[in-house]
Design a protein around this nucleic acid. Structure first.
Length: 630
DNA sequence: CTTAGGG
DNA sequence: CCCTAAG
């Protein structure tokens, strides 16, 4: 039972997706037995095709590895089961593999090779991004998943006739790859056989691009298109590790990429698999930072990307970036981009989960999804993770919060016995550290629900938090029940903060939503009146001191909404009560009116002056307003 | 860390 | 409400 599970590197490297080529152990090779790292060769042929390496080539590579292992930077001992060709590594410098060939390096885990706890954690929550992708590539042990595809729309050359593409490994429908992609957007049915990218026109490249990525592209640049397609066809591997280089209309892969293969399913360390460039530090070259650049600047540096230079491409990119400072693409952008590429692996996590009931989940082994139903009837999907022998079920999360968890959760952490650091981390990551505003409730809930409490104490509610609850409750005394529900002193905040939650009215409420109460709104308005819009942290500190769950951003957002509402409502001034759909807290027209006033005031006078000038007026006015409604 | 804006 | 870029 092999399980190929790809795992993203770390939180900061979400864009990494597993390499696509599943290599097979060749048990017959003594080298591999001796060496825990198995490198399998895949050749990128001169015309851009990928063909499996011949035995001879494999042997050559193995020789290379023997000759100079330092050329390959394997960083297993630093926690990364990643092999990367160094900048002076053989793909470019070794004449035997120059130009048109590239290596795809693969390392398989060897039983007994310890995995760092880190990796366990990463593996646990990285499966969404990467594991899904690799699962489908889990072909037979002796099989190298073909990565070549060609369009069958007839307009694409059939290179076999030319003799160059004489060794096509067609991806037929029903093959391990395409069969899993049935749910995905990219239409692989159009990609059969192989593509000699350099023979394609721009239009054809567009077609291919669409078939590959499931989306259109407007890029006219043939080189770029070819690069992208080649990348996509090689299973959307990570840019940074793949780094195709186009030379003379040939797609050449610059660096090896990595597939980790869990040969031994029973490996104690768990699903183990590590991902590629978890970081780019050290001697590893080509890493995350270049992803954006490759896309962004590829058009600009076409002339430069000859093979001889491709190693220094990063420098060039760096230079260019320095020369022209641009706003860095958001992480979301990058993620979405890489997400598109990963889609060709078919089912996202969601679909895997959904298919778990019929046993078709591509996630095998340790990451088998389990569907639970809580007492309240809400389905909770978790997965079983073997962690230190004890089964730990952690909820699935699609995306992990990448920034530091909020303090509340940290306080939870502090309450835990030190021995469960790993589990804490796991759970924390699994939770994405979301809901830390209600950190205790969350953690509490999860731990209780998942029965991992054996080694995780139920977190205590600190005194300050009790106080907090009390204050909230007190402040909400005049509010409607909806609010009271949430501040129920029992501390049971329900699951409202885990995922979206069905409301009483059947709707779906957002994750950590806490309805704004009227008094909160009033406080906000008052605060804005007093301190001026924009001084959110000040308002938060002074007017919302007891509302720990309202961040300054929340205040800002709410104010924004209030403004919108007030300006939208102002003309009619009536009929809004009905127009609000889920009007849990209908905002009285008077308040909206006040909001509008303030908005106008703030717009006219700079905040610093207006704050004092209108303080008295604002205050009284708001209080009047409030008295009328409370 | 805070603010401003987009999602 | 979330996320992130900027300051």
């Amino acid at each position: 039972m092999e399980t190929v599970v790809g795992v993203e590197g770390n939180d900061e490297a979400n864009l990494d997706h597993m390499a696509a080529v599943k290599t097979s152990p060749t048990p017959s090779s003594p080298t591999e037995i001796a060496d825990p790292v198995v490198y399998t060769l895949v050749r990128v042929d001169g015309d851009g095709r990928l063909v499996p390496a011949t035995d001879d080539e494999v042997m050559q590579v193995e020789d290379l590895l023997e000759d100079d292992k330092s050329e390959i930077h394997t960083v297993a001992d630093t926690g990364q089961n990643v092999g990367c060709a160094s900048s002076d590594g053989f793909p470019s410098s070794n004449s035997q593999f120059d130009g048109s060939e590239a290596l795809i390096l693969s390392k398989k885990n060897i039983p007994g090779q310890p995995e760092r706890p880190e990796e366990v954690v990463e593996a646990a929550n990285g499966q969404h991004d990467a594991g899904v992708g690799l699962g489908e590539l889990n072909a037979g042990p002796e099989e190298t998943v073909p990565l070549i595809a060609k369009s069958d729309d007839g307009r694409i050359d059939q290179p076999e006739s030319g003799g160059e593409c004489s060794n096509p490994l067609a991806i037929e429908n029903g093959s391990p790859v395409s069969s899993v992609c049935t749910n995905s957007k990219p239409d692989f049915s159009k990609l059969k056989g192989e593509i000699c990218l350099d023979n394609l026109s721009v239009r054809e490249l567009h077609e291919t691009f669409k078939a590959t990525f499931g989306r259109e592209t407007s890029v006219k640049d043939k080189q770029w298109l070819k690069r992208r397609i080649a990348m996509g066809l090689t299973n959307s591997c990570d840019f940074s590790t793949t780094a195709f280089v186009i030379k003379d209309n040939k797609v050449v892969m610059k660096k090896g990429k990595e597939v980790i293969e869990n040969v031994d399913g029973a490996l104690a360390g768990v699903s183990t698999v590590e991902a590629v460039n978890e970081n780019c530090g050290g001697s590893l070259i080509g890493c995350n930072g270049q992803v954006e650049n490759l896309q962004k600047y590829s058009g600009e540096r076409l002339g430069n990307s000859s093979l001889e230079h491709d190693i220094s491409v990063e420098d060039q990119q760096t230079d260019q970036r320095a020369a022209k400072r641009r706003r860095k693409p958001t992480r979301r952008y990058i993620e979405e981009l890489s997400e598109v590429e990963s889609k060709e692996y078919g089912g996202k996590l969601i679909s895997s989960v959904q298919s778990s009931e019929d046993g078709q989940s591509p996630l095998i082994s340790h990451v088998r999804p389990i569907r639970h139903t809580q007492s309240n009837g809400r389905p909770v999907v978790t997965r079983q993770d073997s962690l230190g022998g004890s089964g730990v079920q952690v909820p699935y999360v699609c995306r992990v919060r990448r920034s530091r968890p909020r303090e509340n959760f940290m306080s939870l952490m502090k309450l835990q016995p030190s021995s469960m650091g790993m589990a804490t981390k796991l759970v924390k990551k699994a939770l994405g550290a979301r809901g830390a505003r209600q950190g205790n409730q969350i953690g509490n809930k999860v731990f209780k629900a998942r029965s991992v409490s054996a080694w995780i104490q139920k977190p205590l509610v600190t005194e300050s938090e009790k106080e907090e609850h009390y204050q909230v409750r007190k402040a909400s005394e005049l509010e409607n029940d909806a609010e009271l529900k949430h501040v129920d002193s029992s501390g049971d905040y329900s699951d409202d903060y885990i995922v979206s939650v069905p409301t009483e009215k059947g709707g779906m409420r957002r994750k950590h939503h806490r309805p704004w109460t009227l008094s909160e709104v009033v406080k906000l308005v008052e605060g804005v009146a007093r301190y001026g819009a924009g001084r959110w942290s000040e308002i938060k500190r002074l007017a919302f001191a007891s509302y720990s769950y309202r961040t300054s951003v929340d205040l800002k957002d709410k104010w924004r909404n209030l403004l919108r509402a007030s300006f939208a409502q102002s003309p009619s001034d009536k009929g809004m009560q009905s127009s609000r759909k889920h009007a849990s807290v209908p905002i009285p027209a008077a308040i909206l009116l006040r909001v509008r006033e303030l908005a106008e005031i703030q717009a006219q006078v700079p905040p610093n002056i207006s704050s004092s000038k209108f303080a008295a007026y604002s205050s009284t006015n708001v209080h009047e307003t409030r008295s009328g409604y409370l």
